[in-house]
Computed example of a mutant assay.
Amino acid sequence: MNGLFKITKKSIDVNELIQHVISRKAGAITTFIGTVREWTNGKKTLRLTYEAYVPMAEKMLSQIGQEIKDKWPDTETAIVHRIGTLEISDIAVAIAVSSPHRKAAYEANEYAIERIKEMVPIWKKEYWEDGEAWIGDQLETVSYPEGKPSALQLNQKEGDQHD
């Protein structure tokens, strides 16, 4: 499988990403660029921090690429996600998909971002003017004064939800 699937601390170069999927059979290349926005749910965002378990995250990104190849055989995919501290307008994630036809490229690109959110071990912390919080399916809008939650805190939170 061709393509690129990586986690990086460096700024993402979208043109470099496209070079990993361009081919003679491609009639379309779609890109998805996820950026840091200034306002989220009425709160002014100052910056974000992303953390990841890099070996597993890259393995899962590669798996997403393979899933796309299985569903849309003529596609090529590249995915890069940035970790570290990102400022407003910085690129956090970039996905490029090439295909002979645009419909498959659009569908595969949308599939990729949804799968990333579902399965890749990447965590996001938002910093606002009035506080900060880890954001995600299990941590949505929960503030932890001592920093990132421990496994014990997460298990306690899960237990609270099931009671």
Rank of each mutant, 00 (worst) to 15 (best):
M1W: 04
N2R: 11
G3D: 09
L4A: 02
L4R: 13
I7T: 02
I7G: 00
K10A: 14
K10S: 13
K10M: 05
E16F: 12
E16V: 03
I18E: 06
I18T: 00
V21W: 00
I22L: 10
S23Y: 02
S23F: 04
R24Y: 11
K25E: 15
K25L: 03
G27I: 03
A28Q: 03
I29F: 00
T30S: 12
I33F: 02
G34E: 06
G34Y: 06
T35Q: 08
R37A: 03
R37C: 00
E38C: 00
W39T: 15
N41P: 01
G42V: 08
G42S: 09
K43I: 00
K43Y: 01
K43L: 09
K44P: 03
T45F: 02
L46M: 12
L46A: 02
R47P: 01
R47N: 13
L48W: 05
L48S: 07
T49W: 04
T49G: 01
Y50D: 07
Y50S: 10
A52K: 07
A52R: 10
Y53H: 15
Y53A: 06
P55L: 06
M56D: 08
M56P: 01
E58W: 04
E58I: 06
L61M: 11
L61E: 07
Q63K: 15
I64H: 05
E67L: 08
E67H: 04
E67R: 08
I68H: 01
I68F: 02
K69S: 14
D70G: 03
D70F: 07
K71F: 00
K71S: 15
W72K: 05
W72F: 15
P73F: 12
V80P: 01
H81T: 01
R82M: 08
I83H: 04
I83C: 04
G84D: 08
G84V: 10
L86H: 07
E87W: 04
I88R: 10
I88L: 12
S89M: 08
I91E: 06
I91N: 07
A92G: 12
A92R: 05
V93L: 15
A94C: 12
A96E: 03
V97I: 14
S99V: 02
S99L: 05
P100M: 03
H101A: 05
H101T: 05
K103T: 13
A105L: 08
A105Y: 09
Y106C: 01
Y106W: 10
A108W: 00
N109D: 08
E110S: 12
I113N: 08
E114P: 01
R115P: 02
E118S: 12
M119K: 13
V120R: 10
P121I: 10
I122W: 05
W123H: 06
K124I: 07
E126T: 06
E126L: 05
Y127N: 09
Y127T: 14
D130S: 15
D130I: 02
D130V: 02
G131S: 07
G131Q: 06
G131K: 06
E132M: 10
E132I: 05
A133I: 00
W134L: 05
I135V: 15
Q138R: 12
Q138L: 13
L139K: 00
E140D: 12
E140C: 06
V142L: 14
V142Q: 14
P145A: 10
P145F: 00
A151E: 13
Q153C: 01
L154K: 12
L154G: 02
N155Q: 14
Q156W: 07
Q156L: 15
Q156D: 14
K157A: 14
K157E: 14
E158T: 09
Q161L: 13
H162Y: 09
H162K: 13
D163R: 13
D163W: 09
